[in-house]
Write a protein that binds this DNA or RNA. Sequence first.
DNA 1: GCCAACGTTGGC
DNA 2: GCCAACGTTGGC
Length: 137
Amino acid sequence: MNYWLVKSEPDVYSYERLESEGTTRWDGVRNYMARNNLRAMKTGDLCLYYHSNIGLAVVGIARVSREHYPDPTAESGDWSAVDLVPLKKFSRHVTLAEIKAHPAMQQLLLVRNPRISVMPVTPDEFSTLLAMGETTL
DNA sequence: GCCAACGTTGGC
DNA sequence: GCCAACGTTGGC
């Protein structure tokens, strides 16, 4: 089991919309590092769901329901998509400001490289973030 | 293969 | 809305 964090602007595709639709194709990634992370995802892996631009917080957890396949929205190039389903909404949003202030979160790529949209998260970081969100699986 | 210029992302 | 940081592109 691996852990990840994915970013989405909530006015483009929010966690609430994922919940109401039940599943989504995570496509449109056009960054090689993020793509390689998508390709490393296995079915059942868990993804923290972060709202960028508006909200600036981790709001829930999604689960990988289909491993990577060619991104149908890519007109050229070698890009991949995965499918995600909602797993659990955080009882409490964990804001970027809190994450930045937390000593155990200083290595998180969200803090160190804010521009990558799909990133790995260690099991320790994952469980700490879950606790910060007052959420259990 | 280097590097400058440009475009995009995303926090503030 | 601005701007910093980063990734990508393209000329040399």
